[in-house]
Design a protein around this nucleic acid. Structure first.
Lengths: 196, 196
DNA sequence: CAGAAGAATGAGTGTACAGTCACTCACATG
DNA sequence: CATGTGAGTGACTGTACACTCATTCTTCTG
């Protein structure tokens, strides 16, 4: 099965580099992570990474697209698991699928760092596309009310904050209060869910 | 009234530099904004900025503390405006005060950038202190249920996202849906409010 | 097997920036 | 007015990093 080629095709490399970019940029964001970091993770030279993507910013944007693609997939999987087709049940399983997906923090942190890099038009566009895609899909698939979708997204954002500050590991009243009902290891989440 | 001194006291300078740091770092975050940018905004030399704060990271952390201080003030003002002492009324006016405060986007963007710079322990600590302070204050002052406080914070986070992607200026269904009820110019906000 | 097409790199280039330091100037005090 | 303290800076240093390019190595095709 496995080819004994030494070189990959450019397409294979691109895919591998994008995956590496997701992991690497999740660690520190656009400006704190270097092209060399991504290259190292992918096991190729920085020069070739730049040949594949022309600029660091484009690479980040590609990573972000991949991030939203995976989230979309997770949502579809989640929706498929719902036992009934009510908005509430669909939002619940979708939220659970999202929570599970971002238990591995990379996709979450990448979104956080993306919000901080909105000064780059390429990245701003990717974030907007991502938010639009998730919102549209959730709304269409669940047929929930606008208010419910809003709440779904809002709790997703709260989940991002709580994860970045590691509130789940803080034993103080405020942290307990905010994390109540999330505990994103078990896919139970508050009335609404936990996306974007 | 105004002294004709040429030099300021170090304390005055620190305050001015912190204010400049809030404004400057809001534009691009820890890594995208230079000490020289902050210095220019404050009208002094980069060298002296670093003498006052020893490192760029400490300066950012100081800006963040100032940010949370101003938010705390706004919350108190908001609470004072409530017409009755019910949790709902208090959350509503507090959310309105917060929304009004961050209409000028600096304080909001600074928080977003801070979340992206959590790799720096000094900044991580400041963010946690900020979140703790707001949560504790809101919970204590409003006497709202845990769930209500959670929702208050969640919608605050959603407001951050919507502002960074400029959803309020996008004329598409998903953007309309998510911004419904916010429109942070008029201080009307959805059941809950809009903080952290 | 010649040679074209593409994969991949090493070695550079230029620049931007955090942090340092020796120094100058302003101000208060006796 | 001598002197000490603290405000403020210019010039520098070292480094890190995005991006370029000439070149080498691999694979495919006829």
């Amino acid at each position: 099965m496995k080819s004994d080629r030494v070189l990959s095709t450019a397409e294979e490399r691109r895919a591998k580099v994008v995956a590496s970019a997701v992991a690497a940029f999740a660690r520190g964001g656009l400006h704190a992570v270097t092209v060399a970091d991504v290259a190292k993770h992918a096991g190729i030279s920085p020069a070739y990474v730049l040949k594949l993507f022309t600029s660091k910013t484009q690479l980040f944007a590609a990573a972000l697209d991949e991030c939203y693609r995976r989230i979309g997939e997770a949502m579809e999987r989640g929706a498929a698991q719902a036992e009934e087709e009510t908005p509430e049940a669909l939002l619940h399983t979708m939220g659970g699928a999202y929570a599970e997906l971002i238990g591995e923090r990379d996709l979450l942190m990448l979104q956080v760092h993306a919000q901080s890099a909105m000064a780059e038009p390429l990245i701003a566009d990717a974030v907007r596309r991502g938010a639009a895609g998730i919102t549209d899909y959730v709304a269409a698939r669940s047929k929930a009310s606008g208010r419910q979708v809003q709440e779904f997204m809002a709790f997703g954002q709260l989940c991002h904050l709580l994860t970045t500050i590691d509130a789940f590991g803080i034993d103080e009243p405020w942290a307990k209060l905010l994390t109540e009902g999330f505990r994103h290891s078990d896919p139970i989440e508050p009335p609404g869910g936990a996306p974007d």
